[in-house]
């Protein structure tokens, strides 16, 4: 089980804006084993969201390599990256990012539609995912009829569609009260412990980060601290 699922080597990301160029990530090397539960911390602008976008195949590094399950992602076309996002990665965002005027169920079905799952199978699978996050009775509610915590739970169910190995969550508790935050983190912990998902969470709250096993701290585009909370693994 201790396969290296994510490996980045000498990765840099440069943002150029006219004469000004900002190095969001500066020569980072990092490796993640399958089944890890990781928090990425750091002040805003430290490069943690940029790293998440690259890990999620939404963005490409300026320099360096990113191997996902041993595959060099840098060589993939945009459409191939779409497919990787669809099958291997589940996203959870700070602002939930549910599609408006579309029911919770349909939101969960969406990745399966792009993954060409048959319509007859989709609904059942989506319902069982909603059941996992305890929202069976909200399946047909629109996002604006749900509370923040419920929205985020729908988003997690959606991230789990197509059974991806990796869950990437960018400040998943940033818009939630402490009670809902705890609920959400418990779901992530359960996914990691029971389902074996690799979960990576960006946060700037220490108590959220403490749910995880490993905390990587960023500053000015570099890793300044990599602590293992679980002791020796």
């Amino acid at each position: 089980m201790n396969e290296e699922i994510i490996k980045i080597e000498k990765l840099s990301k440069l943002y150029e804006n006219g004469d000004l160029s900002v190095k969001a990530l500066d020569n980072i090397s990092l490796s993640v084993t399958q089944g890890e539960f990781i928090a990425i911390m750091g002040a805003s602008g430290s490069g943690k969201s940029t790293l998440m976008n690259i890990l999620g195949c939404l963005d490409r590094p300026t320099e360096g390599y990113y191997y996902l399950e041993g595959i060099d992602v840098g060589e993939k076309t945009d459409d191939e990256l779409s497919e990787i996002r669809n099958r291997k990665i589940g996203f959870v965002f700070q602002s939930f990012n549910l599609i408006p005027r579309t029911s919770a169920l349909q939101n969960v079905e969406l990745p399966m539609i792009y993954g060409k799952v048959k319509a007859s199978e989709r609904t059942g699978m989506a319902l069982s995912l909603l059941e996992q996050v305890g929202l069976t009775d909200r399946a047909h509610h629109m996002p604006n009829e749900l509370s923040g915590g419920q929205k985020q739970r729908v988003a997690i169910a959606r991230a789990l569609a197509n059974c991806p190995q990796i869950i990437l969550a960018d400040e998943p508790t940033g818009n939630l009260d402490s009670h809902s935050s705890e609920e959400i983190m418990e779901i992530f912990a359960r996914l990691n412990r029971k389902e074996g998902n690799t979960v990576i969470i960006v946060t700037h709250e220490r108590d959220v980060a403490e749910f995880t096993d490993r905390i990587i701290t960023f500053k000015d585009g570099s890793v300044i601290k990599d602590e293992n909370l679980k002791g020796v693994s």
């Binding site: 939404l58 459409d79 779409s82 969406l110 792009y114 993954g115």
Partner: peptide, 16 residues
């Protein structure tokens, strides 16, 4: 625009 971004992050290809 945002919806398109969400769809893309969920695996929608250019063609979709």
């Amino acid at each position: 625009t945002r919806e398109i971004g969400i769809r893309k992050s969920l695996g929608a290809r250019t063609k979709d």
